[in-house]
Design a protein around this nucleic acid. Structure first.
Lengths: 160, 160
DNA sequence: CCGGTGAGTTGGATTTTCAAACCCTCTTGT
DNA sequence: ACAAGAGGGTTTGAAAATCCAACTCACCGG
């Protein structure tokens, strides 16, 4: 019995993309910047760290190497389908920063198909209603865990 | 001319919540776990790191300390309005992990008001249409930057 | 041949993380 | 009263990650 953290998809996802620069690499790729040197410059990541991140993201199936030159072998890093599905994470992070940190001058603006500047909104795919703090409830399905913490293994299962 | 990284709200936001455990702390708070010890156990964060993260998140206006006991002074950490607005980031991270890492057994399930299990979808607040890779375009508004990189200060501004 | 570009690799200094122990202030049990 | 325990940290030193500059290797252009 040694204090393992809560099982959670957020933690699992962050284990792949939560290291420093990983999401910035994804940002660059989603902006169309696919090559090592330019990703390094645009993110500010040291080159050795970038090497490690790219390797990890490729292994995780988030990026893939696409050759663009033989002799010497050179690759571009492009998002896989799984990688592209991380875009909502980037968009919501950006929206938060735009609102709370850069309210007066957003460095990058996203434009939606409809012609408007994107204000992203998270909704329920079933009913289309907003999915925010007030409209969501959590159900923990991991054995041994409740919403607030691990189940005490005897001697008074209740919470403080 | 010393290679500064791209100005970007994603990077700015990650500077606040991108350090290890920061988003897991927010996850716990959004699950209703407000106290030091329990957050430490549920996230697995070492206590000294947790102290540092909580301090930073409070300073950033994402969490606030609410006293629940004097003598000795004890506080709960609760999300501010700004902190609550990070929920979409947590939800999209969780959705990705649920799909790509825990497809067979989601550790936590979110239920929406409408009675269904939440499938989050990111849409444009204006037109209501899906906001994904295909329907978005980027416009870089930082002086000296284009979509793919910094503007070369002379001698041929083009890209490789 | 010389300089330059792209994509790394290597070595060593600096920061962070980590784990365990310690501290202080109450509260509870006997 | 006294010992034990809970809650919320701080301290200490070892282990890991990050940073940065320099170096390599393969090619290209002149």
């Amino acid at each position: 019995m040694k204090a393992s953290p809560r099982p959670c998809s957020i933690a699992d996802t962050l284990a792949l993309v939560g290291e420093k620069y990983a999401l910035l690499v994804l940002r660059e790729v989603s902006l169309g910047v696919y090559r090592f040197d330019r990703i390094a410059r645009n993110t500010g990541a040291p080159r050795d760290i970038l090497t490690a991140r790219l390797k990890r993201l490729v292994e995780a199936g988030i990026l893939e190497k696409v050759p663009y030159n033989e002799r010497p072998p050179r690759y571009e890093y492009r998002a896989t389908e799984a990688g592209a599905e991380l875009q909502p994470v980037l968009v919501t992070l950006m929206a938060w920063g735009d609102r709370h940190l850069n309210a007066d001058a957003r460095p990058v603006v996203l434009e939606h198909d409809c012609g408007e500047v994107l204000s992203p909104r998270l909704v329920c795919a079933h009913c289309g209603g907003e999915a925010d703090r007030g409209s969501l409830s959590h159900h923990v399905r991991s054995p041994g865990w409740t919403t607030t913490g691990p189940v005490e293994t005897a001697a008074g299962g209740g919470e403080a």
